[in-house]
Amino acid sequence: MSTLQLWGQYLPQFLAGLVVSLQLTGAALVLALALGTLLVLARTGRIRILAAIATGYVEVFRAVPVLVLLFTAYYSLAQLGLRLPGFWAGVVALGAFYGTLYGEDMRSGLQSVDPGQREAAVALGLSNGAVMRRVVLPQAFLAFLPPGTNELSNLIKDTSLVLTIGVTDLMFQANAAAAATFQPMDMFLLAGLVYFAFYILLSRILARWELNVQRRRS
């Protein structure tokens, strides 16, 4: 069969795979943002032991490859009695790793806010909560956006790792189609086009969003 015919035949399956990849990305992103927030709170808080645990967590989980985390979540936890379905093992592994990255991005975002801003807000008589909510966080968010969106496009690509534990994402579909058709290059190229189109689309949208946020603020 010609390449185009094959592509037409397999495209629906690939798009179904893309949906799984996106669900995985969304769930992992939520977990990573929550974990990142906790890590920042722990590291900037007053309780020493929590700060030490959070720092240790970041050091360790940043140094271990995501694939090792994935196999740990899928196989090792099962041996220890916690049997996660492939999808959720993927969410846990990706969330555990990207949480450290998002935590660091949030921390440097907070640090980028000029201390004078906080002092001025306090001098104006704003309460602690209001200083955070109205002065510090909006500025920190602006600094957080560029690295944060960059991390997101890496997260999408890393969801392709779940192929190794049999989750039927886009990469899994491509691999299955490659084996079925004996035309691996055609199938992987189609997968590449789908990933790439999505990557371009997403980076355009995120760039526009960043620009809008910046404009509204200034």
Binding site: K157, T159, S160, A174, F188, G192, Y195, I200
Partner: peptide, 10 residues
Amino acid sequence: GLPPILQLFI
């Protein structure tokens, strides 16, 4: 723009 696994498989 492409996932590492995909590049390796290509």
